[in-house]
Amino acid sequence: MSGGIYLENGKSQLLFKDKPIKILLAKPGIDGHDRGILVLAKAFRDAGMEVLYAGLLPTPESVVETAVNEDVDVVALSLLNGAHLTVFRKVADIMRSKGIDDIALVGGGTIPDEDKPKLEEIGVTGNYGPGTPLSVIIEHVTTRAAEARKRKLSR
């Protein structure tokens, strides 16, 4: 899936042909609920992505630092402890303050509907809850990764 071809202006662009999507998974709050993120790590890997997992309890600062050092396409944040509005925002703010625009930010966890627009506004997309088909998540990540990769390539 991640080796997919993206058609743009009638030209085929093999975005991920030489280098598959690189994704960093992280739970940047105080939260041990890791069932979802561990399943996703395997699913992304099975879908051909290069997967990094930041482990439990990384700070938002260290997540961004790892993302930059590893030159990932996507950072996927997961929280099931209700702190997503505060903590996802911290990650987004740090990225913005550092001027990072070639890494996509996606989220997931126990996120009430009314919080989703607030997260989208700060650039955290997806925000899928438990019970979302993996295919939906993989597709979303792939789309966002393609945007990020294009920005990287246009540099």
Partner: peptide, 10 residues
């Protein structure tokens, strides 16, 4: 500071 946003949530 790490507790920011998490107080009383869970």
């Amino acid at each position: 500071p790490r507790s920011d946003g998490e107080i009383g949530r869970c």
